[in-house]
Design a protein around this nucleic acid. Structure first.
Length: 503
RNA sequence: GUCCCCGUCGUCCAGCGGUUAGGACACCGCCCUUUCACGGCGGUAACACGGGUUCGAAUCCCGUCGGGGACGCCA
């Protein structure tokens, strides 16, 4: 089969489909921006769909944070859970009946089958395959189950999943608009689970069904999806649906070129907002990633009297005007905080003194923030001038305690860093209120034989950079989860590096 | 390990068969300046390697090497 599908002209409709599993991610903003521009350039529609089919990772506050973060950088959408639209609902958890019906269609036409292995059995299978150095893949044991076997399993009450029946032979080729044809041999395409045993669909089914039902013409998503695209193509074909065009964007990277991750780089948009980055700078920076913007030529710079930096500084409107998807560079761009900061500084300097003051008052010196900080120190200070001394770490972007500050007397550096990592893991999982933080931290200390004093002093040092500070837990609450966790992660990364260097 | 994608200064981009390989960030130096920053000027720094194709290759083809991604009842 070939990828040549004569695409009937259809209206441009694109979407982003974030999962509400935590803080809104810079990658979501990046792909969101690209989709937004794509739609704007073609007079199309930009849809926001919430993919909340994994109830184990679901975070209830996440959806609203995603809306807020996208609006913060200046993106809006024509259809979505909050604004509605003709193709709703836009939350996958509200569409389960639709997926069930479509899974039944696949079952009926032989494109999918029921499989009754338990998660443990599958894990064991993968373990053995990995040990034998063969690619971990479903072994197909239940591909050809007879009706009587299926009835028997069902009668036993065994839970089942529905898997895609990938043809044993042949291959699937699809066209990536940036890369050209990409072919996967079917021996390398796994019988993907489509419906989980809890009745929810996996990404692959839900995504294809929704994209089709919502009339999505162009799927613009991150490169990490390339290897599952053949499964999606197989699904479109099994349903007899027209394929969308696929545009796989390069993946944002850490400094070491690996896929961007919170351990090595702040990735929460909440972090950037609360740390005082301007949304315009963030948007501009994301637009820089992967190219796409034609830089002004030497002649343009001269004739239009542009600054030479002009090539790197542009607005959303300019992006819509000039961004060219066919120009995108395929090498994964490093998310370089240093350059982001420079850009942010450029935007800050452009502000009039009045605007600058107003911006400070809306952001890091907002009434909301100050009124949360003030009670922490009111009883502790003797002059107002001490306010800055006591709360500096809550307004700072760069805190790193010396070893003499954070290292408990009777602990080695190794066990201290290990414990700090445990603190991080604990706080990552906790609801961000004083009682929960305190309880979980204390529980961790007990289980690791760390005294309350050692425990809280270490964290105090990491967060405040000092052994003296306003109350720790309250400070954490005020400082916010995104920034607190990031400070802890930076601490760990830096100290681990220093520790290895010493060895 | 298997499959797929990618490969121009440290980083982000420009370059689309003929350029002294260009710009920005970072770095270094000089100027401005009581300091720092801003600003101005200048500098260091790259076509991964090997074969082709061509009069001519960073640009086209193949291979090698390197990097990344995927391989979940996560998305």
């Amino acid at each position: 089969m070939t990828a040549e599908t004569i695409a009937a002209p259809r209206p441009t409709r694109v979407r982003i489909a974030p999962s509400p599993t935590g803080d809104p991610h810079v990658g979501t903003a990046y792909i969101g921006l690209l989709n937004y521009i794509f739609a704007a350039q073609r007079g199309g529609q930009f849809v926001l769909r919430i993919e909340d089919t994994d109830r184990t990772r679901f975070v209830s506050t996440s959806e609203q944070m995603i809306f807020d973060a996208l609006k913060w950088i200046g993106l809006t959408w024509h259809e979505g859970p909050d604004v509605g639209g003709p193709f709703g609902p836009y939350r996958q958890s509200e569409r389960t009946e639709i997926y069930r019906e479509h899974a039944d269609i696949l079952l009926a036409n032989g494109s999918a089958y029921r499989s009754f292995e338990t998660a443990e059995e599958l894990e064991e299978m993968r373990r053995q395959q990995t040990a034998a150095k063969v690619p971990p893949r479903y072994n197909g044991a239940h591909r050809e189950l007879s009706e009587t076997q299926i009835s028997a399993f069902t009668a036993e009450g065994r839970p089942s999943v529905i898997r895609l029946k990938v043809p044993a032979n042949g291959s699937t080729t699809f066209r990536d608009e940036l890369r050209g044809d990409i072919t996967f041999d079917h021996t390398n395409v796994d019988d993907q689970v489509l419906m989980k045993s809890d009745g929810f669909p996996t990404y692959h089914l839900a995504n294809v069904v929704d994209d089709h039902l919502m009339g999505i013409s162009d799927v613009i998503r991150a490169e990490e999806w390339i290897s599952s695209t053949p499964k999606h193509v197989l699904l479109y074909k099994a349903f007899g649906w027209e394929l969308p065009q696929f545009w796989h964007m390069p993946l944002l990277r850490n400094v070491d070129k690996s896929k961007i991750s919170k351990r090595k780089n702040p990735v929460s948009l909440v972090y950037y907002r609360e740390s005082g980055y301007l949304p315009k700078a963030m948007l501009n920076f994301l637009g820089l990633m992967g190219g796409g913007m034609a830089q002004p030529t030497e002649q343009e710079i001269v004739s239009r009297g542009l600054n030479t930096k002009e090539g790197d500084i542009f607005s959303l409107a300019e992006m819509i005007e000039k961004f060219d998807f066919k120009r995108i560079s395929l090498g994964g761009p490093v998310f370089d905080l240093v350059k982001l900061k420079w850009l942010n500084g450029e935007y800050l300097r452009k502000l009039s003194p009045e605007q600058f003051l107003a911006t400070l008052r809306e952001t890091i010196f907002s009434d909301a923030y100050l009124s949360a900080v003030a009670p922490l120190v009111q009883t502790r200070l003797e002059t107002l001038g001490q306010f800055g001394d006591m709360t500096g770490f809550l307004f700072s972007d760069n805190v790193m305690p010396a070893e003499s500050v954070f290292l408990p007397k009777k602990r080695t550096i190794e066990e201290t860093l290990l414990f700090a990592a445990d603190q991080l893991a604990t706080l990552e999982a906790v609801a961000w209120d004083a009682a929960s933080i305190e309880a979980d931290l204390k529980q961790l200390g007990e289980s690791r034989q760390w005294s309350v004093k050692e425990n809280f002093m270490l964290l105090r040092a990491i967060i405040s950079g000092s052994t003296t500070s306003p109350p720790l837990v309250e400070s954490l609450v005020v400082f916010g989860k995104a920034r607190s966790l990031d400070r802890m992660r930076r601490f760990l990364e830096v100290q681990k590096k220093l520790a290895t260097q010493r060895r």
